[in-house]
């Protein structure tokens, strides 16, 4: 005879438990943490390079750079002046999970750190399910992508607190419409804060830097 046994448990409860521990630990250490997510090639590493160049003498930053293969992004961040950069090579996995981040954090000296950036694997689907214990998700879109990205990946844009619209120096060269992307993003998440930047020309980065200065 068939018997029904109630379980009622989150499938990712193990991940969420570790994420909660990370969040608690970061709070105790007074560290603000941001989880950067986007499609591959939107400019996560470029934004962090610029952020390091501008703020490394003012804010003590730690960075975790996730990649499916290679430590190229981590190496770029070290070259840009990051003195606490930890690569995570997922070896095929399409997202970071809380366990990977907790292990990376265990190998870092966080004593003086004020700001932690976690650069997720370039992917707008899978990372949305995994809480990394961050304070906020920052989603990047670039002007060479479709302006319907927020509508295609609602789970991610719903969970993000910030979007950075990057490569604005290329506006006008594609059919990407700035007003439309903002409307699409705000329709998914009316509380999103939006930055418009070009990591190549530096346009709009001042506002991003100011926001980070105020955050810590």
């Amino acid at each position: 005879m068939t018997q029904k046994i109630e379980i009622e448990e989150k499938v990712l409860s193990e991940n969420d438990k570790i994420a909660a521990e990370i969040r608690k630990r970061m709070k105790e250490k007074n560290i603000i943490s941001l989880n950067l997510v986007s499609s591959p090639g939107s400019g996560k590493t470029s934004l962090l390079e610029k952020t390091l160049s501008e703020l490394k003498d003012k804010i003590n930053m730690a960075l975790i750079a996730g990649d499916v293969q290679t430590e190229n992004d981590a190496n770029r961040l070290i070259k840009a002046g990051g003195n606490m950069v930890k690569p995570i090579v997922t070896g095929g996995a399409c997202h970071l999970d809380a366990k990977m981040v907790a292990q990376a954090l265990n190998e870092m000296n966080l004593d003086k750190v004020k700001l932690l950036f976690i650069e997720n694997v370039g992917n707008l689907v899978c990372p949305s399910s995994y809480d990394l214990g961050e304070d906020m998700k920052v989603a990047l879109i670039s002007a060479t992508e479709g302006d319907d990205k927020p509508l295609k990946y609602p789970a991610m844009f719903r969970r993000a607190g910030i979007i950075v619209i990057n490569k604005i120096d290329l506006l006008g060269l594609s059919d990407f419409d700035m007003d439309r992307v903002k409307k699409n993003a705000l329709q998914i998440n009316g509380n999103l804060k939006i930055f418009e930047t070009s990591c190549r020309t530096g346009a709009g980065l001042d506002k991003w830097f100011d926001w980070l200065r105020n955050l810590v």
């Binding site: 068939t2 029904k4 046994i5 109630e6 379980i7 009622e8 989150k10 499938v11 990712l12 789970a155």
Partner: peptide
Amino acid sequence: GEELDIVYLETE
């Protein structure tokens, strides 16, 4: 709408 839960098991 954000659920991802294991709710029950049905056994023989």
